[in-house]
């Protein structure tokens, strides 16, 4: 049932993608991203549950802690600092982005079938899940105007890359994995500060207002 459970988890992550596309309130969006982080963190344990060594366990724990706890906490703090609760009138509406996301997910499943994958990966949802997450991330980055929603989009995009990475869990050095995680955390930390600054400078987090900086 290992394969089945893993597919269930990837399916759950894909469902969370759609949830992220459909949620208008920032706390809900952050919760969704956090939940996806936890789901992703569990996966290495499932893939490697026969030869569980401390390194895989460390990756899992670090992922869960980083994506499920630390980053959401940073985001929530930034949200409170900027004093915003919800996204109002996104660039691409919720229903269109949901439909686009669903179409993308279906296309990803179809595309993954057409790709020449290793036989070991052909039945798995990892590749379509990864593509769907990357697509969702892009959709959020393009379609939302509040900086925090865009950060969430960036995180989902990164989650997609992480899912790709799981395919190569045997050959990727642990250092790369943890390096990425560290980068992301630092990135979110920095963005938290920037968000605060944008808020002070423009009285809003609408990234469209940044066009006034182009001169």
């Amino acid at each position: 049932m290992n394969e089945g459970t893993l597919n269930l988890l990837v399916g759950l992550a894909m469902g969370l993608n759609l949830l992220a596309l459909g949620s208008s309130r920032l706390p809900a969006l952050i919760r969704t991203v956090a939940a996806q982080g936890v789901v992703l963190g569990v996966m290495p344990l499932l893939i490697e549950h026969e030869t569980l060594d401390w390194r895989v366990a460390a990756v899992a724990v670090a992922t869960i802690a980083g994506k499920g706890v630390v980053i959401p906490w940073l985001l929530r703090r930034a949200m409170r600092a900027a004093n915003i609760e919800r996204e109002i009138e996104p660039f691409v509406g919720y229903v269109p982005s949901l439909l686009l996301g669903a179409g993308g997910t279906i296309a990803a499943v179809g595309l993954a079938r057409a790709l020449p994958l290793l036989p070991a990966h052909s039945g798995s949802l990892l590749v379509p899940g990864a593509m769907a997450s990357v697509l969702t991330g892009f959709l959020l980055l393009i379609g939302r105007v509040k900086a925090i929603s865009q950060v969430c989009g960036y995180l989902i995009l990164e989650n997609g890359i992480y899912l790709f990475g799981l395919l190569l869990i045997h050959s990727t050095p642990l250092l790369v994995e943890s390096g990425i995680l560290l980068d992301v955390t630092v990135g979110v930390f920095v963005i938290g500060i920037i968000v605060d600054r944008i808020q002070r400078a423009f009285d809003s987090l609408d990234t469209r207002k940044l066009t006034t900086l182009r001169e």
Binding site: L18, G22, Y94, V95, L98, L99, A102
Partner: peptide
């Protein structure tokens, strides 16, 4: 939005 979710 909710009905679209149901459809999906």
């Amino acid at each position: 939005l909710l009905l679209t979710t149901a459809f999906l």
